[in-house]
Design a protein around this nucleic acid. Structure first.
Lengths: 151, 151
DNA sequence: TATTGTTATACTCTATAACTATA
DNA sequence: TATAGTTATAGAGTATAACAATA
C-alpha cells in the first residue's frame, strides 16, 4: 500500500500533523485565530515586552512574515505594540486584556482538540511522544527563524 | 519561554516536522524531487496501475492538485501514464525504469536523512514513535484526499 | 447520476531581496 | 557595520467551483 513510505518517520510526521491541523482549524472556528497567530500570542504572553524579531526566532518565523502577523493581532486588539524605550528600532509587545481572554478561550478549545486527537494514547504515551518530538526538534539547524534575510 | 505552547503535542509535531522538512529538502537537493512528488512516486511503485484519484486519496491530495503533479512526473520520465483499458476515464500509472532508479537514489538519501534526524533515538524509540504517529494519523477525518470537490 | 481527469482560480504559508531608522 | 522593522514579491501547497468524457 504505502510502499517505501511506510517506514519513514518524516512521512508519518507529515500525516499526523495534517490530521492535527484539520482538527485544530475546526476547533478554532469562529475565534478568528489560526495556528501561527495563536502561537505568537502565546509566546508574547509568556515573554512580555518581547520584540517581533525575537518572537519570530522562537517560532521559526522570518522577520518579514512577522509584520502582517503582528499588525493583525494589534488590529484585533489582542496585542499592544509600543516603541521599546531602550532600543527605539524595536517594538515591545504585550498581550492585552482581550488577548488574555482570547488565549484562555483558545486554550480551552485546544485542550479538547488535543484530547480528541490523542484519545488512543495513555498519559504516559503522550508524555513519551512529547519527549521524542522534543529530541527531534532540537536537531533544527541553528538559525531557523531568520538570522540574516538580506543579501 | 514557550508558555502555553510547551505542553501541546500539535505544536511540537509542527516544529519537529519543520526540522525534518528542512533537512529533507537539503538531502534531496539536485534530484529535482520534493516531498509530495516523491510520495506520489512511491505510492505508484507500490501500487502499479493505480489511477491519479486513488493515489491522491491515499496521500490526502485533491484530484485537482494531482494533475500538475503527475504531469511533472511524466515529463521527467519517471512515470508512465496510459489510458486504463477497463475504465477509459482513468489513467493507469506505473513507474518507469528511470523512475525506479530515481526512487532508489532518493530512498538512499532519505535513509541518511532519517538517521540524521533520529540519531538521538534508539531503534526501539524510533519504532515506538512510528507506532504513536500511526495511531494519531488514523484519527484523520474520513475523506481527506478529495471525495467530492464539486458543488 | 456519479466519477476521472481537467482548468481556472484563490488563499495561506514561507522565502528572498532591498529599503529605513536606529544602534 | 549590524540590527529591528518594513515593503514588495515569488513560490509552494492546498482549497473550491465548474466542465468534458466516460461509467
Amino acid at each position: 500500500m504505502l510502499g517505501a513510505l511506510a517506514p519513514l518517520v518524516g512521512y508519518h510526521l507529515r500525516r499526523a500533523l495534517s490530521a492535527f491541523s484539520a482538527d485544530f482549524t475546526a476547533a478554532m472556528e469562529g475565534t478568528g485565530l489560526r495556528q501561527v497567530p495563536l502561537a505568537v500570542l502565546a509566546i508574547v504572553q509568556a515573554n512580555p515586552g518581547i520584540n517581533q524579531g525575537a518572537a519570530g526566532r522562537m517560532l521559526g518565523i522570518k522577520r518579514a512574515n512577522m509584520v502582517a502577523l503582528i499588525n493583525d493581532l494589534v488590529e484585533k486588539g489582542l496585542i499592544d505594540r509600543v516603541v521599546d524605550v531602550s532600543d527605539r528600532r524595536a517594538f515591545s509587545l504585550t498581550v492585552t486584556k482581550a488577548g488574555i481572554a482570547a488565549l484562555a478561550d483558545a486554550m480551552a478549545r485546544i485542550e479538547a482538540h488535543e484530547n480528541r486527537m490523542l484519545d488512543e494514547l495513555s498519559m504516559a504515551e503522550r508524555a513519551l511522544l512529547l519527549d521524542l518530538l522534543g529530541r527531534i526538534e532540537r536537531r533544527s539547524p541553528a538559525g531557523d527563524g531568520d538570522e540574516n534575510g538580506d543579501a
